[in-house]
Design a protein around this nucleic acid. Structure first.
Length: 596
RNA sequence: GCGCUCGUAGCUCAGCUGGAUAGAGCACCAGACUUCGAAUCUGGGGGUCGGGAGUUCGAAUCUCUCCGAGCGCGCCA
């Protein structure tokens, strides 16, 4: 028998037990079983698993929880995986599994390799994860990096859980900021031609990173753009500057091991270059679509209270009826000059995503965009008849420290520390793991000195070291037993896992068995940090077992005169190594064979 | 004024979508290296889960209300 997820398996058995009682007439039929959970109890003394079935069903069944628990327990006692059943507290049913169940879970883990924990709970549902989406006006900073790592890990996680994932980047190339970029690059172009441009004027981007762009333009066009009409020249400059910014951004992302499937240009919503001037404005089309359904109207908004707006003009404008979909006020779609607001093109963009068949949309945003969530969710509801769900994950700020002291801003890059500087200094693994070792909505202190420290205080190191230690056991074991297979996983069948009976060993097996459940929960909650914390706990338990061997030689992994015992232990270590490798892969962090 | 995200040990944070006596790391105290790399491990003290009320078998978790922090608040993106 191969059970992939032991918790899901037992949950299924508990449900069947309840159904059996229903059939037998001991319970009403058709009870809602969805609230039943099976989870490891906090206190191991309560057994391997606990279910709340009796407490959850008591009311609907019209029975007392303890009484109902007795009935369910009686059914479960006959189960071939279950060794003991006890009822405790207000009606918990505590289950102790037969050791074979855990041995089986370990075998499954080892045999499945890095696919262990993968599942099909996503049912191939198409999910779009949009992340980074930084304005292409300069290098990425550390905050962007956190969103990038989060989005990437979440996408990995969802794919692992059986969702069909598209990783996407939305490029705001239609707004005023890109025009500022173009003017800034044009200045650098004149500089490259040898003109004295003086100080960069207020409002333009001062960063040195535009110098190479200016030089590139000068090299490509010579002096021809210098005297061309401004609009025409700027259009050319803008395209080149934009493309070069995007190349730089993609390089920064690549340094973190991130590549996205699709780069969506905002301008393609409005201009279809290949179709010529008569192309359809998809923003207008989307707004019309909403207007036909009564979600868009002409009206007035009250001025916001609190911060008074000096030039407030009470005027009639085009509004989206977002209050009908859970927002606090209706939102404007057009500026006073008649052009569309950013929100309007965002609606069109999300309409495009919906049109591409995604059932779940996940947007990863910086925390300063929090005030935008309600209207965007409202828009997605309106566009999809509430069939598509938008989950917005807000990424909190990153505070850069070095040994506890705030890091000074880099002058070279403008006014921020670039992502690339940080990755170059501490490495991809440290950046990725630390950024995932925190909930997305909690602020993050990122200490450049701490993350390269080799100690328990540095979770990146601690987890990677766990993997390396496991590999080192295999290396040492081969010195003793020359005939070990190249892949320790091949020992899974022959090894007498029943000899692994120390509480620490069994506990480690339980931890390994928990992994598929953690993956599933993390994927459904859109919370990759759970993987990072789980890995830390797993590594911790492994380190502890390792050290037990110091004082108790019979617990060492390698027993010189007992090949069978060694084989069993190696399979256990292989289980640990397998899960660490699998989890680290989800986080996009390397699982090293040795630390250096 | 309104909205969003938060408030858990001295510090930094978890807490498995409502479960049992709230957990780690750091710091502090006391221990374990003729080892399978001690780059680690073991034990200890330390909490009115911001305050209060409610929902129910059961609340750090859900609701309400105060207090406090950060972010945001028609044409910026």
């Amino acid at each position: 028998m191969a059970v992939e997820n032991i918790f899901a398996e037992i949950l299924g058995r508990v449900r069947r037990a309840v159904e059996a009682l229903g059939v037998a007439g001991a319970l009403p039929v058709g009870l809602d079983l969805s609230r039943i959970t099976v989870e490891p109890p906090r206190d191991a003394a309560h057994g391997d698993m606990a279910t709340n079935a009796a407490m959850v069903l008591a009311k609907d069944a019209g029975r007392k929880p303890r009484e109902l628990a007795d009935a369910i327990a009686e059914e479960l006692r006959a189960d071939d995986l279950i060794d003991g059943v006890e009822i405790a507290g207000p009606g918990f049913i505590n289950l102790t599994l037969k050791p074979a169940a855990w041995l089986d879970a370990l075998r499954t883990a080892v045999r499945s390799g890095t696919r262990y924990g993968a599942s099909d709970v996503g049912h191939d549902i198409p999910v779009n994860v949009e992340y980074v989406s930084a304005n292409p006006t300069g290098p990425l900073h550390v905050g962007h990096g956190r969103g990038a790592v989060f989005g990437d890990a979440l996408a990995n996680l969802l794919a692992f859980a059986g969702f069909k994932v598209t990783r996407e980047y939305y490029i705001n190339d239609a707004g005023a900021q890109v025009d500022v970029l173009a003017r800034s690059a044009y200045l650098r172009y004149r500089e490259a031609l040898g003109q004295d441009i003086g100080a960069i004027p207020e409002g333009l981007y001062p960063g040195d990173y535009l110098k190479p762009v200016g030089e590139l333009i000068a090299k490509t066009f010579g002096e021809t753009l210098k005297n061309s009409p401004e609009l025409e020249g700027l259009a050319v400059v803008r395209t080149i500057a934009l493309e070069n910014m995007m190349i730089a951004i993609r390089n920064d992302l690549a340094a973190l091991g991130i590549s996205q499937d699709r780069f969506f240009y905002e301008r393609t919503l409005i201009f279809q270059e290949e179709l010529g001037a008569n192309s359809i404005d998809r923003v207008a089309r989307t707004i019309d679509w909403l207007r036909e359904r009564g979600f868009v109207y002409q009206g007035r908004l009250p001025p916001p209270k609190g911060a008074p707006i000096e030039d407030w003009e009470d005027r009639e404008q085009t509004l989206f009826r977002s209050t009908q979909f859970g927002d606090d006020v209706d939102r404007p779609l057009m500026k006073s000059d008649g052009s569309y607001t950013y929100f309007a093109s965002d609606i069109a963009y999300h309409a495009d995503k919906i049109g591409r068949g995604f059932r779940t949309l996940i947007d990863v945003w910086g925390a300063d965009h929090g005030g935008y969530i309600k209207r965007m969710r409202a828009a997605v509801r309106a566009l999809s008849d509430a069939k598509v769900e938008l989950d917005v994950k807000l990424i909190q700020l990153v505070k850069l420290l070095r040994a506890g002291e705030p890091v000074k801003m880099s002058k070279r890059a403008g006014d921020f520390v670039t992502l690339r500087e940080v990755v170059d200094e501490v490495g991809r693994d440290a950046v990725r793991f630390m950024m995932l070792y925190r909930k997305n909505d909690a602020p993050l202190d990122f200490d450049l000195a701490k993350v390269i420290e080799q100690s328990r205080d540095n979770p990146v190191f601690y987890v990677q070291y766990g993997h390396a230690r496991g590999q080192s056991v295999f290396r040492n074991a081969r010195e003793v037993f020359r005939d070990l297979p190249r892949d320790i996983a091949e020992l899974a069948d022959e090894a007498e896992l029943g000899r692994l009976s120390d509480p620490a060993e069994l506990s480690l097996m339980r931890r390994i068995a928990m992994y598929p459940r953690v993956v599933e929960a993390a994927a459904q909650a859109h919370e990759p940090h759970r993987i990072a914390f789980y890995l830390y706990d797993l590594a911790s338990e492994f380190h502890a077992l390792w050290t037990l061997g110091n004082a108790a030689p019979h617990l060492r992994f390698i027993i010189q005169d007992d090949r069978q015992m060694t084989a069993a232990r190696l399979v256990l270590v292989k289980g640990v190594v397998t899960v660490l490798a699998s989890g680290l892969a989800l986080l996009g962090v390397k699982a090293p064979d040795e630390m250096r």
